[in-house]
Design a protein around this nucleic acid. Sequence first.
DNA 1: TTACAAAGTTAAGCACACCTAAAATAATTA
DNA 2: TAATTATTTTAGGTGTGCTTAACTTTGTAA
Lengths: 226, 226
Amino acid sequence: MPSISKENYLKAIFIGNRADKKPLTTTEIASRLEISNAATSEMARKLADSGLIKYEKYKGLRLTKKGERIAVNVIRRHRLWELFLLKVLKLNWAEVHDEAEKLEHISSEKLIDKIDEFLNYPKFDPHGEPIPDKNGELPNLPKTIKLSETEIGKEYFVIKVDDSSNELMNYLTKIGLKLYEKIKVADKLKFDNSVIIMLKSKQINLSKKVAESIFVSESSINLSRN
Amino acid sequence: MPSISKENYLKAIFIGNRADKKPLTTTEIASRLEISNAATSEMARKLADSGLIKYEKYKGLRLTKKGERIAVNVIRRHRLWELFLLKVLKLNWAEVHDEAEKLEHISSEKLIDKIDEFLNYPKFDPHGEPIPDKNGELPNLPKTIKLSETEIGKEYFVIKVDDSSNELMNYLTKIGLKLYEKIKVADKLKFDNSVIIMLKSKQINLSKKVAESIFVSESSINLSRN
DNA sequence: TTACAAAGTTAAGCACACCTAAAATAATTA
DNA sequence: TAATTATTTTAGGTGTGCTTAACTTTGTAA
Ligand SMILES: [Mn+2]
Ligand SMILES: [Mn+2]
Ligand SMILES: [Mn+2]
Ligand SMILES: [Mn+2]
């Protein structure tokens, strides 16, 4: 069992994984974890020694199968906790991430499976991110586009939101925007690239930055595993 | 906020607190936490420096008001988690303690309050130990005696069990003995000091050691706060 | 009351995970 | 290609919490 710190590195590497499949740089990991480059280089060596990543000096790093299994498991624990905290214990949208960030490292497999069962094997976390199942399989991702790239006049379902800012989560909560809600794009302003949506007959103007953090789809999705 | 390690010391000091009110020795703490005497001496100095305990070399230590507040809070978190894991997530009697041992250190006040609310402000944990409320107040303890000290022929309610051994918890689960169950003392053998009880018309022989780990009362108790 | 044993503390050192500053390597620009 | 700049690694160091071994204090028994 890797330490809390090592689990965080593995998770960061998995999530930082790029579309182009190129290895990640130690610098990218360092900035994601908000620690020094030096610490990351050192840890890279250790993780490579224990076979959790492949790492060549100056050439970046990538997860091995073994490292990926652990990373995916940490992510499973994180996302299940997030959903559990929101749905069962009624913490709010902005609070669940930070709490899950700690819980993900200290929950036994058994406890996590119980939570999974309690929630009836959910496919997505409170931000719309996929939850790996017990075998590490991720559900199929719904095809989404950014709210900033939608067409005026059309209706969409909110499928995912960027979870990296508590402030954004609080704002979305305040205006009453939730996952799986239906919205209509009323207008888009060329002036500042903001998007005006209709949410339950309320009209809301969302800035470019906010609109780029909300992912929508024209069709709704199936939430539970078959 | 003290570190996980410091929280464990404070909790151990609180729980180890003796009836005679004499200060605890560093050796007692060390053995309870299964670490060396040396580590405990060193930590005693640090805890004293931050005003969490009073400590005089060679004279033992005791909690200050400030240290006690933290200790009681850790215990609150531990016991609420234990009950939550058992009642809501259906972990079993023998599993909850070890899991709570980790969760107690990383849960926010808010999360713990939500759990407290979810459980409807319970007074006792799954082993019959009192749960401190948000203000650190402990509920009144029911008066109990050891099962080994009961009278033959009388009926009792199981009020508390010693939670220090997973094996014992598993054994009690297997024979179907639960908290708040009514039992009748059928016989006590002088030969080995074992106690024979009737539990739901089943007759069970409990060794001296087991009988000394079970605490009973002649009257049942009120479980929820007022 | 002294000698010895037991209990408790200090000393020295280790693993972990981080830091800053210096050095090495790679990438870019002239 | 050489010089310059940017990226990445190594060197040296820190704080926490632990260890074993040596030493000090306290309690007990001769
Ligand atoms: Mn999250
Ligand atoms: Mn999430
Ligand atoms: Mn316990
Ligand atoms: Mn308990």
